[in-house]
Nucleic acid binder design. Structure first.
Lengths: 338, 338
DNA sequence: CTGTTAGCGCTTTCAA
DNA sequence: TTGAAAGCGCTAACAG
């Protein structure tokens, strides 16, 4: 059994192909009874218009590409979900490409996307990308590009990212409001600008609440687990130990957890912990480890929305070229069932 | 700047469109010098053939669809990665569709896939799906369908899934080899057949090692956290408490962890734990909680491979219509850094 | 309201 | 070894 097409429908109905086409697109130039006949037969024969014929003719594919460095990662997985949700709403299809953090793959993909296969692209840069010519070429072909999370500063394009400053602020403020007076900040060197912005948020939150900003409370942890653990233990061994911790990655929060166990400190009674995290780990581990996560799903939706706004030319000027969503607190109210 | 096409190349080179087309496809009927000229100009002008024109003409899109119930889940995320990897190797593109566990969405998607948009489909059934007509119709349109993980027993189609029996066996055997003599099995009612098969594996591993199979060691935990926690605590309060636990979901492993803390049992000295898990949670929590996970990435690759084998008609009979991959043990050697 | 016609960009006979 | 021409299935002028 092969696909049914307009011609067959037309033949069957004694109509011309164009009439059938118009009827199916519910054109006002077609009489209601004719439309009805067409609709009925189309449904009966389960007619599905060939999207490629239509794309070829109309120079638009109703398809977008999502290019991500990886997907085995809750953040990007949720992003896909967000993107797919609004894409489907709009009747678009989503092609997915993974660069595996390889600049070369990113270039190859971007280059192949110049074929007209997609109407627009949502992309998160891979870490190793240095050049941006391949992205510029996309734009020159009038294929709208929206950056997602890992944006490219040099290019003029809509960008959706996390507001790291605000996230740091929110996280710190959460601890302060919970009664902490000596809030530590644990960080590893991620992208430096990200770390810095989170730290600025942390510092400003302390200022805002008129708390002293003790430099010894900011610990830059090394990648090596043992060394990192040692530094955290030292931090908590001091008589001026923190009563709150803002960890910029989950791994550090888990280390804090183990340090506290070792030192006999109770969480959250003695030490309150909040951690950046895109996994479910921390909160499963210990419900009182509050989590602050990038709003991946919303960011995906936002990116898609920005892209479609461009695709559908529903704008003249573009006021919101850059969207920064704050991370979201996830205070688990899950009972530990004790 | 708009896309460059065959016509433009032909004009520029004083050749016919068909010659250029053939040259680019490296046809043997074209002289080497001509080919060279064509290649050079194509590269210079960054020619990207319009895939839709080609699809329309050749009735194949070099595109597959991946239909999943969700993706905010490490298992499916990894699966996508596996699928995308082999798809790219083969020069195929991957469309992604999420059903959000809604049978209605699954039907709508499957139905739209009859349009010829894709050459094949990899699908994981959503929980609520009862009917399978939409899938049958796909097959009738000669669109190969491969089931992934959540397979459909009624339909004849290649299936890739986890070998739950073997997984249960492996997990249990792991504990026995580690010295456990009273291995408990904690389970929630997932799909019953899955639970059953894992349990059979568990039972057979005990038999194989000539250990008694005490029914009181198999606990079916309810969904309610408190109740589940209570049952687990009771299990461990007995004087005949288990010295090993095979948890069929991560949540139960975490509960075991908390029960042990409450009762002063040490992990892994007093109780060894192994848990089914597609998250990173358990092992981050407590390195000694060995994890056994579905080999999502490999399953994805396998499913894609099976699909492409059909698409490329490289088979006459299909010997491997059903592949069952065993789950994979992940014994973390991460130091807890104490 | 409906039909005729001319493509979209590519592949593929068939002819030279 | 190359070119001319037809056509994949659909859309959109344009004409009735």
């Amino acid at each position: 059994m092969n696909a049914v097409n307009l011609k067959q429908l037309a033949l069957e109905l004694n109509l011309s192909v164009s009439t059938v086409s118009r009827a199916l697109r519910d054109s006002w130039e077609i009489s209601t009874p004719t439309k009805q006949r067409v609709f009925d037969l189309a449904k009966k024969m389960n007619f599905q218009p060939n999207p490629y014929a239509s794309s070829l003719r109309k120079h638009r594919s109703r398809t977008i590409a999502v290019v991500l460095p990886e997907v085995a990662n809750n953040f990007f997985a949720l992003a896909i979900k967000g993107i797919e949700t609004v894409a489907r709403e709009k009747g678009y299809h989503v092609l997915i490409y993974l660069t595996n953090e390889e600049a070369a793959e990113e270039m190859a993909i971007a280059s192949s996307l110049q074929s007209g296969r997609v109407d627009g692209v949502i992309l998160s840069l891979c870490g190793s990308t240095k050049e941006t010519r391949h992205l510029l070429e996309l734009q020159q072909r009038n294929i709208p590009l929206v950056f997602f999370d890992r944006v490219c500063e040099e290019l003029t394009a809509p960008k959706v990212m996390t507001n790291d400053y605000e996230s740091g602020f929110i996280a710190t403020e959460h601890l302060i409001k919970a009664g902490c007076r000596r809030v530590a900040h644990l960080t590893i060197s991620m992208s430096l600008s990200i770390s810095h912005r989170r730290q600025e948020g942390y510092v400003d939150a302390l200022r805002r609440w008129e708390l002293p900003c003790d430099p010894s409370l900011v610990v830059h942890c090394p990648r090596e687990e043992e060394e990192s653990y040692r530094m955290i233990r030292e931090l908590f061994s001091s008589s001026f130990r923190p009563d709150g911790v803002f960890a910029s990655v989950e791994k550090l929060a888990v280390q804090v957890y183990h340090v506290c166990r070792e030192l006999g400190l109770r969480i959250p009674e003695d030490v309150k912990v909040i951690s950046f995290s895109n996994l479910v780990t921390a909160s499963l581990l210990e419900p009182s480890l509050t989590t602050i996560a990038q709003p991946a799903y919303d960011m995906g939706k936002e990116a898609a929305t920005m892209l479609f706004r461009r695709l559908e030319k529903k704008y003249i000027v573009v006021p919101d070229d850059q969207v920064m969503l704050p991370a979201r607190l996830e205070v688990r109210n899950s009972t530990r069932a004790v």
